[in-house]
Design a protein around this nucleic acid. Structure first.
Lengths: 173, 173
DNA sequence: CAAGATTGATCTGTCAATCTTC
DNA sequence: GAAGATTGACAGATCAATCTTG
């Protein structure tokens, strides 16, 4: 059933290297934290701004560009969304008047997503409460040094994830 | 627009306490890490076991009980799911033969979710590859001391989240 | 025809009823 | 009637086409 079952492998099945108690504990705590932190933030935004986490960040990333404009594909990258998900999502935000889309005049293959005045106003109105929440749930808990360490740990995890997703290299290449 | 706009508040609008560059950086890195780690694990499980993260953990939590049985409400707690979400989810797992449900004989208000032999076999077949992934993405990156610190940080965040969700206390109570 | 983007079908999660048992 | 659980309608995400532009 498992694709990694060594059916045609002459070696005996590998012993599974289970997590020990401390590792298991650390892992579960991390998973629970990630789940609940995400949920807490989603709830705050939904309640106070009627925006999902990713909708908020879509508006936020657009607002950071001097011309309040990003290509759909770039916006997808910075929001960690697939282009398909972003396209659906931007359609909805467009329907609410927060974003509009137009083809890039330089190259019609690209679509520019543009933050409208309404969208910017929405962000400005929503940001304070959200920043308060991020502060009170995360930032205020840690000293400067701890926050640095937390960032460093996150970066190390990100590096692992990235390298695990690189296409497999050809042996001997 | 924002519910926290002090429309009828005589005090001047509060200055928003924005994040400074380091805080912003730490926060974004943490968010990105949580997003991508979750996605990496979801993908591994989907690919190797045709299970979502929460489906896997539903089977796993059941398997830890000596009688491979938990009440739906308890299972919802340990998987961090709403009862409604769990009910839909268990229906699907039941359809695949991994779980069955029966009313608690002691008290018909409760429903017991029971891991079937098929479900247990599925878990046993799926666990090694998943544990490998957790190891290679997370556990192997950190020393024992670092892992302890990571757990501690997560616990502190969890404590913040919990206390932020307590019902507001009555002043003077 | 390759890259960017959209679309539609399907699946999963959420929310607000509803049902059941004590 | 209260707690546990389920249900159905709806919103959102994913995946595999499909469409468009250069």
């Amino acid at each position: 059933m498992s694709p990694r079952e060594p059916k045609h492998d002459p070696r005996p099945p590998k012993e599974v290297h289970w997590l020990d108690a401390k590792q298991e504990d650390a892992w579960r705590t991390l998973v629970t934290m990630m789940t609940r932190l995400r949920r807490a933030l989603e709830c705050q935004l939904e309640r106070d701004a009627d925006l999902s986490f990713i909708e908020y960040h879509t508006l936020a990333r657009l607002s950071e560009d001097p011309s309040h404009t990003l290509r759909m594909s770039d916006l997808a990258e910075v929001t960690d969304a697939s282009l398909s998900r972003l396209s659906h999502l931007v359609s909805r935000l467009e329907g609410r008047g927060f974003i509009r889309r137009e083809p890039d005049p330089k190259d019609g293959r690209y679509t520019n997503a543009i933050l409208t005045n309404t969208g910017n106003a929405k962000l400005v109105a929503s940001a304070p409460a959200h920043v308060d929440e991020v502060r009170s749930l995360v930032i205020d808990e840690f000293s400067e040094a701890e926050l640095r360490r937390l960032r460093k740990y996150s970066e190390r995890l990100l590096a692992r994830i990235e390298s695990s997703q690189e296409p497999p290299t050809v042996a001997g290449a």
